[in-house]
Design a protein around this nucleic acid. Structure first.
Lengths: 186, 186
DNA sequence: TCGACCATGTAAGATGTTACATGATTGC
DNA sequence: GCAATCATGTAACATCTTACATGGTCGA
């Protein structure tokens, strides 16, 4: 029940399905992922329900863009969702389920290579978020991030969490690798 | 595509649908949640595919228990899943999407109460995991957690991550509350 | 006797994934 | 000419959620 709400939130500003896909990949993937094949039908349904409107715009390359934006009704529906309070218990991280069961693997080397992959991926994501933050810093001057307000403040707080979490994951993966090596010695 | 695999992993030991629901609530909810209405059909499908077998057992209270366990074929399918490497990009945390868009809320007090709820919930979960760990410690003696091997080692590493993450979330939520208060003063 | 817990499920509808299908533009 | 990127979708299938349905045991 959340993707339509997330789309609605993004459509405070006009955007096409393709634009939204890029936003997911670039910045939202830390807490949500969605593919084009899910985004297009969801936008159509929002439009059918009167929560967004759309129009065509020419594109520089490729076919015409269908651009969507919140309607007043959509804005209210979105705010209702925010005011429901935090939607907890939506955790879904398959890699942690795998980590939990790693003792059942056949290949004796699997746990090590698994955690190495985790560590490398998390490190790359932490760096990607840090790079995104550097771009922001350039736009906002030396008082960044203390001078942020409104939308930018809340976006930054979420990004900040992403960086903290990914760094924690990297440290954890390294500690796990050390423990695996330690347990093998016994 | 992950719930069937998680069920298979749990069914290294015999368990009923109800037992599995309890395991999700107790210890797996940190990284995955599943309801009974999802578990029962999933178990039936695994049985139809020959990945688990089932038998009836009398229950002390209530109706007979249908107990399931991995077959050899199920065990192999599970190991294949482990060896696919970490399934990344399965993140789905609705509350972070809400946090990202909090500037769009109507009620000026919404961000504060939202982050307070997050902080309190995370603190409760961190404490719950710590309590679970204390039970383990009693079972494993003073060398815990360094004396863990096999399944228990990997379970503990995942629990350890849960505790670290929840503590980080609590600190983050408190920092966010301070930032919200700071931004309101301006 | 009432609520909490044990224990099973089904049905309908919403949501998400995978594979397929199309076609223009830009840079190498 | 080929791959990447821009840009749109549909169809079939798998998965998940919400609501409904049933009934026994235990303790307050």
């Amino acid at each position: 029940m959340s993707l339509p709400h997330i789309l609605l939130g993004l459509l405070e500003e006009p955007a096409s399905g393709y634009d939204i896909k890029c936003e997911f990949e670039q910045s939202l993937s830390f807490f949500w992922s969605a593919a084009l094949a899910q985004i297009y039908p969801a936008l159509k349904k929002l439009e059918k329900d009167g929560l967004v409107t759309s129009w065509q715009e020419p594109s520089e390359k490729g076919p015409a863009r269908t651009v969507y934006q919140q309607t007043e009704k959509g804005r209210e529906a979105f705010r209702d969702w925010l005011e429901e309070g935090p939607q907890l218990n939506t955790e879904r991280r398959a890699y942690l389920a795998q980590a939990y069961f790693l003792a059942q693997s056949r290949a004796p080397d699997e746990p090590r290579s698994f955690y190495e992959q985790l560590r490398d991926d998390f490190r790359a994501r932490a760096n990607r978020l840090t790079a995104l933050e550097d771009v922001w810093r350039d736009d906002h001057g030396p008082a960044f991030p203390d001078n942020l307000t409104g939308q930018a403040l809340y976006e930054h707080m979420t990004f900040d969490l992403g960086q903290r979490v990914f760094r924690l994951y990297v440290d954890w993966a390294e500690d796990c690798l050390a423990r695996i090596d330690g347990a093998e010695k016994d």
